[in-house]
């Protein structure tokens, strides 16, 4: 920059005058900061409230942050070896459980535990019976003080193989559970949750027919099934609203629009104590 391009003091004064900064007293700055703070928090938390992300029951303890964003997960992989099918059993005391497809090729399961503390690591048990590999992932339980540990977002994310038939048995005491199983090939599904919100998404499922049971104690449950599948759902609900979308009521059950009882079909039994149920064919 040559000397001519440098702004003179007069030019700075002119700029200050244009921005009207000279009238910004300490009190005005504080008032502006207070206003910005209040408005920003109101808008931010308002958006979270409207989108439902603020609810403590949504799996993030009322925080606007993703619970596991700051924690590097411990990853464990179970190779299929010579097995051609799998049985996965997950037992979690309390926390957030996510199960989906997308395990690395040649593996039955890849689990990611978002905690580095040893006391928060699940116990794994692996066995093979013929061509079926069974993997158990069990929460060892915790003493009271560990729930307040700095490493305590008890968040498990499990990816399962998409090319091997899998029987999934998941138990969760308290917390939110999201099963996105549309890309899997299931031979059985058993889900048992105590309290929390649960989503079982079978959208786009192209695998074999299977029999599934969902037991939920308290909390809202959403089940999505593919509209074109041959599926029958039996619902046994205690207290709460039941909403179905795209399903046909048949006796005490609901079926997909093109349900054929003579053909191979998927059956899902839902038992719920308290909470709303939404079942939709998508």
């Amino acid at each position: 920059m040559n000397k001519k391009e440098l702004p003179s003091d007069d030019q700075f004064a002119c700029l200050i005058g244009r921005l009207n900064l000279s009238s910004l007293t300490g009190a005005k700055i504080i008032l502006w900061l207070v206003a910005i703070t209040v408005v920003s928090f109101a808008i931010g938390f308002g958006i979270l409230a409207i989108t439902g992300d603020l609810s403590p029951s949504a799996g993030h303890r009322g925080s606007p942050f993703i619970a596991s964003a700051m924690v590097s997960p411990n990853t464990t992989v179970f190779a299929l070896d010579r097995s051609t099918a799998g049985a996965v059993r997950i037992t979690m005391g309390a926390g957030e459980l996510t199960v989906h497809g997308g395990a690395p090729a040649g593996t039955l399961m890849e689990s990611r535990v978002f905690s580095t503390a040893p006391e928060w690591q699940p116990e794994y048990l692996q066995s093979t019976n013929g061509t079926v590999m069974t993997v158990s992932m069990t929460d060892p339980g915790h003493t009271g003080k560990e729930w307040f540990s700095v490493d305590s977002p008890n968040v498990w994310e499990v990816a399962l193989a998409e090319d091997a038939p899998i029987s999934l048995d998941a138990k969760l005491g308290a917390g939110d559970c999201t099963l996105t199983l549309g890309t899997l090939n299931l031979t059985g599904l058993s889900l048992n949750t105590g309290a929390g919100e649960t989503l079982v998404d079978l959208g786009g499922y192209r695998g074999e027919v299977f029999s599934g049971t969902i037991h939920q104690g308290v909390g809202d449950l959403t089940v999505r099934i593919p509209r074109e599948s041959n599926t029958r759902i039996v619902i046994n609900q205690g207290i709460g609203d039941l909403e179905t979308r795209g399903l046909v009521p048949t006796g005490n059950a609901y079926t997909t629009p093109h349900f054929n009882p003579a053909g191979a079909n998927t059956e899902i039994f839902i038992h719920q104590g308290v909470g709303d149920i939404l079942v939709e064919a998508i």
Binding site: I36, T37, F41, G44, I47, D53, P64
Partner: peptide, 17 residues
Amino acid sequence: IWLNPVAGFFIATGITT
């Protein structure tokens, strides 16, 4: 890191001020 980045934008502004 944010559940909702737009909300995060405003909340982060609020945290700063």
